[in-house]
Amino acid sequence: MTHNGDSGNLSTGFATSMDRRKFLAAGCATVVPPASLAQDWPNRPIKFVVPFPPGGAADTVARELASRLQVSLGVACLVDNRPGASGTIGVDAVVNSPADGYTLLSHVSSIVIQPHLAAARHNVLAELAPITQTVAGSYVLVAHPTFPASDLQSFVAVVKRSPGRYSYASFGSGSGPHLAMELLKGHAGLFIVHVPFRGAGPALQELLTGRLDMAFETTFAALPHIRAGRLKPIALGGLYPSDALPGVQTIATSISGFDTDGWQGMFAPRATPAPVVSRLAEHLTRALRDREFTQRNSDLGFRTIGSSPANFATFVRSEYEKWGQVIRERGIRPD
Results as ranks from 00 to 15, higher is better:
residue 106 S to A: 07
residue 197 F to I: 02
residue 278 S to W: 02
residue 226 I to L: 10
residue 12 T to N: 06
residue 12 T to K: 12
residue 226 I to T: 01
residue 185 K to W: 07
residue 211 R to L: 11
residue 241 P to M: 10
residue 306 G to K: 12
residue 137 G to D: 04
residue 278 S to C: 03
residue 215 A to S: 15
residue 80 D to W: 02
residue 121 R to W: 06
residue 55 G to L: 06
residue 135 V to K: 02
residue 303 R to V: 10
residue 303 R to K: 08
residue 145 P to Y: 05
residue 230 R to L: 12
residue 273 P to D: 08
residue 200 A to S: 13
residue 281 A to I: 04
residue 277 V to T: 10
residue 136 A to P: 01
residue 276 V to Q: 05
residue 273 P to H: 02
residue 309 P to D: 12
residue 3 H to R: 15
residue 233 P to Q: 08
residue 184 L to E: 12
residue 279 R to I: 03
residue 204 L to A: 13
residue 115 P to R: 08
residue 116 H to L: 15
residue 221 A to D: 15
residue 17 S to Q: 13
residue 264 Q to C: 04
residue 264 Q to T: 05
residue 8 G to T: 03
residue 278 S to Y: 01
residue 105 L to D: 03
residue 253 T to N: 04
residue 259 D to I: 06
residue 267 F to V: 02
residue 250 T to A: 11
residue 248 V to Y: 06
residue 160 K to V: 09
residue 87 G to D: 10
residue 82 R to D: 09
residue 112 V to F: 04
residue 15 A to Y: 01
residue 59 D to G: 10
residue 53 P to C: 05
residue 77 C to L: 06
residue 233 P to L: 02
residue 271 A to K: 13
residue 310 A to N: 12
residue 274 A to Q: 15
residue 209 T to F: 05
residue 318 S to I: 03
residue 219 T to F: 05
residue 177 P to C: 09
residue 93 A to Q: 08
residue 295 Q to M: 07
residue 196 P to E: 12
residue 130 P to S: 10
residue 69 L to S: 08
residue 162 S to M: 15
residue 104 L to I: 04
residue 20 R to T: 12
residue 27 G to L: 13
residue 49 V to M: 09
residue 214 M to I: 12
residue 82 R to V: 14
residue 315 F to A: 14
residue 31 V to E: 09
residue 239 L to T: 10
residue 48 F to C: 04
residue 56 G to I: 01
residue 241 P to W: 03
residue 293 F to L: 14
